[in-house]
Design a protein around this nucleic acid. Structure first.
Lengths: 343, 343
DNA sequence: ATGAAAGCGCTAACAG
DNA sequence: CTGTTAGCGCTTTCAT
């Protein structure tokens, strides 16, 4: 099933068939019709390998996720597809599973297949070594990636400032959550979050504390309470917080799992959410936020939007635009029951 | 960066360079070394497009997931990669998002790129139309897929019996759960599950009821209680069940979310899990099962194993083996706290 | 052991 | 408007 078969059936030359099918050159309408008919009858589909070989590009981009597709990578990937698909670019997804070896392997696979560009995505914004031949990073300096194709990091950040990284603005998200709690009339607000080694935890806390300071307040019940990103920690820390600072009237939680644990703990001390204690989470992980009792107000990182931006940037890069720097994209607040104003 | 550049640098002909790099023909060790060195120095990587064009195959398989990569598709995909990767096949992942149009689109993309085979994966085992040109299904009859490459359905089932479908054995899984509860000394066992329109719900219930019948028992508190696959429904149905049949000593839940809701409901009636009421879930969705209080005993569908099997079957298909029929792969039980024997 | 040449399927440049 | 030809990068005969 090649274009020669189509040409033969239509009674024209190979070149004419190609032009007729691609709308290039000038071909009589009658011929176009005959060629199209022949192609349809034969179920002809152009061989993308031959086409790519000739054109020097493949209309394919690779997306490497450093950890398995999870709740962070998936929306990023969908956004990227939204941006790339309409221009009929295909996205070649690879799961690095957080393993450098696998990642190198996939990089190789992608480059061999001559993808036009690569998106690297992960689940943390802590800077990571750039993809590419190990050790090439340092030598590259500000010069951008040492790879033969443009690369965009999305929901991941390269330690090489010459690479373009797109990350959610965690500090702004934390500020958003805190401002919302203040607006709903709370003033004695605690903060329970994940491990301090995560940039996300530190930044969210910092943003929240800035807003609090602007209102002349500080975290109620002591500095950010760092622990695991789990429900278990949410319960435990909330329990301790309510014991040491019983008049706490709101808790900003570093993610939705912690918030859900917090909701259970609040309820189990005989208090009500949101009437006694308001809660705000982070991530807008639907299945968590919706199953929480009551449904959880939370911060959405707009990852799909971030993925879309990554796709657009990559397209620009493929067309020759320079790609570098770290860009922070805004989070937004999704209000639900858990932070309703009193009365 | 082509093989000619390598050949020139090594001072040999193109053909010799090719043989040296691929270990074909007979080439003097000395020449091999020179060519390898040249390739290394230049960072040469073969162009997979040119190679594929010539070979008529691409060492690439496509994986189309009918709904976004979620907790069902991901393990299947990983298993498939485990089976295919070592033979250095690349897996081209596509997210159909449950949309037939997108699916067609990706199928096209994959066939244009001349993948060697396709795996279709989903999250339900209810039979679905085969992929491929709409309407081609019926005419194909038992003849297998009308596509030019082999196809395997994994965690998805084609309505065309000529296609090969791999699904978890839900009935066996349900039986496993029920047998486990009986073994732990329970006899008054209820069943709360998802919508009846899901084959999974019906099959799990059927398997459970068969085991119960063999023990001379029947579902306690009435037939399978069908509802949503949500925590909310788990809470609601469990509450109703414990009201109408207060002596219930175990509940088999159709999935882990329902089980988690059930755990909350049991606790809120003043009963203890597992001392008063034992619980078993289904899916082994780690984040749910582990966050449940107490940790949830559940049935694992071994999806990774299923994915691996799909990859192996596809390889066989690519090598010419015929592929058809429906195969059910066994589930296994993951015991945790929620069903510990009393005393 | 090595080189020369053909050809995978396609598009583009150039003739006619 | 249509046909012919060259060549993308690679592997593979077939000579030498």
């Amino acid at each position: 099933m090649t274009i020669s078969d189509v040409a033969r059936l239509a009674g024209v030359s190979q070149g004419t068939a190609s032009k007729a099918l691609n709308g290039r050159g000038s071909i009589s309408p009658e011929t176009v019709r005959r060629v199209r008919d022949a192609a349809d009858k034969l179920g002809y589909q152009a061989n993308a390998l031959a086409r790519g070989l000739l054109a020097g590009r493949t209309w394919t981009v690779g997306l490497i996720t450093t950890d398995s597709f999870g709740r962070f990578s998936i929306p990023v990937m969908q956004g990227a597809e939204d941006a790339l698909g309409p221009g009929s670019m295909a996205v070649f997804l690879c799961d690095g599973r957080g393993d450098r070896i696998r990642e190198q392997h996939y990089l190789r696979i992608l480059l061999e297949r001559r993808v036009d560009g690569i998106i690297v995505t992960g689940r943390r914004q802590d800077p990571r070594d750039p993809i590419g031949p190990a050790g090439a990073a340092g030598s590259a300096g500000l010069a951008g990636s040492s790879l033969p194709v443009p690369v965009v990091y999305a929901m991941a950040q390269s330690t090489n400032p010459g690479d373009l990284s797109l990350v959610p603005d965690d500090a702004q998200g934390g500020a958003l959550a805190m401002a919302h709690l203040l607006n709903s009339g709370r003033t004695r607000i605690g903060h329970v979050t994940g491990p301090e080694r995560f940039a996300a935890a530190r930044l969210r806390a910092r943003g929240a504390q800035r807003i609090l300071a602007e209102a002349g307040l500080a975290l109620h019940g002591g500095g950010p309470h760092h622990g695991e990103w789990t429900e278990e920690w949410g319960r435990q820390a909330t329990d301790a917080l309510l014991r040491s600072a019983p008049d706490t009237d709101a808790i900003f939680c570093g993610n939705d799992q912690i918030a859900r644990g917090a909701a259970d703990a609040v309820r189990e001390t005989g208090r009500a959410v949101p009437d006694d204690v308001a809660l705000v989470g982070f991530d807008n992980w639907e299945v968590m936020a919706a199953a929480c009792r009551p449904p959880l107000t939370t911060v959405d990182m707009n990852l799909r939007e971030l993925g879309r931006a990554a796709g657009e940037r990559l397209l620009a890069g493929i067309n020759g635009a320079p790609l570098s720097g770290v860009e922070k994209l805004p989070c937004s607040l999704v209000p639900r029951e858990s932070s309703r104003s009193r009365r």
